[in-house]
Design a protein around this nucleic acid. Structure first.
Lengths: 167, 167
DNA sequence: TGATACCGTAAGGATTCCTGTCGAAATATT
DNA sequence: AATATTTCGACAGGAATCCTTACGGTATCA
């Protein structure tokens, strides 16, 4: 950069724009697909559950951390999905505070359809980009989060409480 | 998958979860950084402007398409940023309907700081991941959007008007 | 055993983005 | 040339998503 100010967006699209754009496209595509398959009760926000809840069940607080949203937001989404018969909750026998979130039978079917579709997408992507490239992209995204979370942790340690997303 | 239903999230984290997580991390990091540099008027939503407006100026409608949001949403964000002295608008002499969006002097400074920070991040990423890997990840993200947009176009062509995000 | 931290939850609000619509201007159609 | 269609930015209203603050119950640690 030889100018006084780095000229915005002169060289190439900033990474954040690429990620944001891809995110919107995927969110919309997944919901569109779920609706097309008859699961019209599925909403955008449910993706942060489908993306963080495995078949064995999990705690809401852990899911919130994995999704990068607050415990309260995750709890609200989960309660809604329980009402839609997508999830079930039961108290954790090992921890009186916690509850275990699981897919209901119907929810497991919906999630199954969604993951099957993701599998198709993934195959299409690996054809289009090459398997190695696709894996590298996944790895970069995952490690990117680690780096940024490290930044956030360092900074919310320096000042009192600025960036806390987890509560 | 040898089971009746693909078990959700058994093999590995779905791509949509990775992208969504990375997106939240970056959005938060950029705003946090802008605030730390004294630009406390910068909001999350402004990222879709900083990511789609280059130094030469652009039309709101084009920026909306690039950001993947509606013309109306982009217009609202732009108007807000004009009020914050981050952007300026002038009617397009070549097209009576259109207006050209540009950075104000102050906005150019803010954007410059943001892009400089992005440059630092990028350098840190390329150190951490390797330059090739980083470039591959960028390429995959960009082409991923193309594929998904093609899907959306095909589907909103088949039915009457389901998925239109731009119109 | 008291202090501290963590669980899910509640309540209220800020933010972001959408749908539907409009008048004006450009473009396509006949 | 006259009309129809599309595209532009804007306005109005609202849906959806997520946050902040705060609470009672439970686990854990000093």
């Amino acid at each position: 950069m030889s100018r006084g100010y780095a000229e915005p967006h002169l060289d190439r699209k900033p990474l954040i724009a690429l990620v944001d754009r891809a995110n919107r496209a995927m969110q919309n595509d997944m919901v569109r697909r779920a609706h097309a398959e008859g699961h019209t009760e599925v909403k955008m926000a449910h993706n942060s559950v489908f993306g963080t809840l495995h078949a064995e069940g999990a705690r809401a607080a852990d899911m919130a951390v994995r999704a990068g949203i607050t415990r309260q937001s995750m709890g609200e989404i989960i309660r809604e999905m329980v009402g839609l018969d997508l999830l079930e909750m039961q108290s954790d026998p090992a921890d009186g505070r916690a509850k275990i979130v699981r897919y209901s039978e119907h929810g497991l079917a919906v999630a199954g359809d969604g993951f099957r579709y993701l599998g198709q997408l993934e195959r299409r992507f690996t054809e289009e980009f090459g398997e190695q490239e696709y894996e590298i992209a996944r790895d970069v995204l995952a490690r990117l989060v680690d780096v940024l979370d490290r930044f956030a942790a360092e900074e919310s340690q320096a000042s009192s409480s600025v960036g806390g997303k987890v509560g």
